[in-house]
Write a protein that binds this DNA or RNA. Structure first.
Lengths: 289, 289
DNA sequence: AGCCACTATGCTTCCCAGGCATGGATGTGG
DNA sequence: CCACATCCATGCCTGGGAAGCATAGTGGCT
């Protein structure tokens, strides 16, 4: 004498398919089973839920309200299970290869030391923003703060800009360069990758921008392309430190604004330790600068 | 391989009782059955939910979150069923005997004519505000707008005030009286009943209030007490029209502010036709006002 | 009228939730 | 330190009911 989840699922299927037979197919059941489940539901609720008068049967007002609640309940249950299972799952941190260079090691060490039972998956992604949005990761370290209202970000720290130049480039041996010099030399394209942070083209005033740009997928492609002499790039100091590459020279850009690294998470956390982890990251960043 | 409501109920019982055995008792089941249901739930969710290390077992973090969601889901289901069943239930209107005198008949007629399939229960209550709060009624007509934030009210119409006097009272034969006259004559107490609207004592300025008041439960007691010569009262014109009583005279009070009749409902409606009914009431009141 | 598509119902099977009995673990008191 | 008490887990069994199969009932359409 109790309404169960199967009743709600059956009602939803009938409402969506419009006929008991079709609903049965969707539910991988036979038509009589569905028919009887519906009858049972009506008996248990004590109210007529489906109007059988016409050929295409439709819900009564009561059926509509129960359907609405039922869908919400089923969705809530799914969410509840996802939430619960997340407790036993590693926390997944997404990052671009260009970030987390120097901070990575102290961060991982500190987390593993304080929370030995919560494993951390550090996932290198070409596009960590997308990873957050699809639920592939729980937290991400980004160069660009996305506009998506379902993702909340906060600034972590800033880094100086460096130019990445082929080592036979006329400016490659300089101590430092200015933006204007980079575009007045050989007409190389500027290489960009997703999440390349404050799209580096915008560093120049509109009338002095590089003639062409080239998109690459990640830092390795970026470095290879530059080493080949096919492009130059502008990145952050951390990238230079963590990604030395033969044939590529990094030269500080003295008149470019600093690059900001952001910490991002979904507004509705996908892992129960999210907040805890964010605090740990802030902590590590503030001590290791 | 699916989490069912019984699993959630079992988890809640275990969490509240603290032991499997006690939970079994509450659920009217044997201990092994509960034990196995819990094991099954953990298997299906794939996460350890209960910590068996100590004697008194308690929930893991994961268990806590699932418990929270589970309780919400179960509550939601209850609410959903109540909502759905309300469709087939008469709409219950609470009112004080002192209200709805002249409006009652046209209201009922109009509703029955336009919605013959939605029966209306008109319930006379000593305290209709309480009726709304407990869910005994879906809508109510009141003299006092309650402060309860879960009840929303709106003004319906106003009525002139009348004094209710024993017919041997010196003022009983007057065409009209003033408030001051009522308290300067024989020192009778003022009779009040629950929901007696803008507690009629407040009609007088503080220094000229009646010496004593008497509480009665409803209009009949009120009229009887007055007819016996044991009190006088101040009511609304509608009360006088619908409740003639031997031994009681009604005399208009010329300097009392009009009494307002309110229409009240729970913020979360307990009947799906609530809004519809409110509109009908407003309609009737505005034409027969 | 007759067909067709869909729903309802009788019968049957089989799965599984729950009861019973019991073993194992752990804390407690003599 | 052992005997006991208390509580949880597990093997076995049974009854109820959910779903399948077959078939009857019903309303719309040509």
């Amino acid at each position: 004498m109790d309404v169960e989840l199967r009743h709600l699922r059956t009602l939803a299927a009938i409402a969506e398919e419009g006929t008991v037979t079709a609903a049965a197919a969707r539910l991988h059941m036979t038509q009589p089973a569905v028919s009887r489940t519906l009858a049972q539901l009506e008996a248990r609720v004590g109210v007529r839920l489906v109007d059988r008068s016409s050929r295409h049967l439709d819900l009564t007002k009561a059926g509509e309200t129960l359907l609405g609640h039922g869908r919400a309940i089923l969705a809530h249950l799914d969410a509840a299970l996802a939430d619960t299972r997340a407790h036993d799952r590693p926390l997944r941190l997404g990052y671009t290869c260009a970030v987390l260079g120097r901070q990575t090691v102290p961060l991982l060490r500190s987390w593993r030391r304080s929370r030995p039972h919560v494993p951390l998956d550090v996932v290198r992604q070409d596009n960590p923003t997308a990873g957050l949005a699809t639920g592939a990761t729980d937290v991400a370290v980004l160069r660009t703060a996305p506009a998506d209202p379902r993702i909340r970000t906060e600034a972590l720290y800033t880094e100086d800009r460096v130019a990445a130049l082929p080592d036979d480039h006329p400016l490659a041996d300089r101590d430092r360069v200015r933006l204007a010099e980079l575009t007045s030399g050989p007409p190389l394209p500027l290489a960009l990758w997703p999440d390349t942070g404050t799209a580096s083209v915008d560093l120049w005033p509109p009338e002095r921008r590089p003639d062409r740009t080239v998109d690459v997928r990640n830092v390795d492609e970026w470095l290879n392309l530059i080493a080949m002499g096919g492009a130059f790039g502008v990145g952050a100091a951390g990238t230079a430190e963590s990604h030395g590459h033969p044939g590529v020279r990094f030269v500080p850009v003295e008149d470019a604004p600093a690059a900001t690294v952001h910490l991002a998470r979904p507004v509705h956390p996908t892992h129960p330790r999210t907040e805890e982890f964010l605090a740990a990251v802030r902590e590590v960043v503030s001590t290791h600068g």
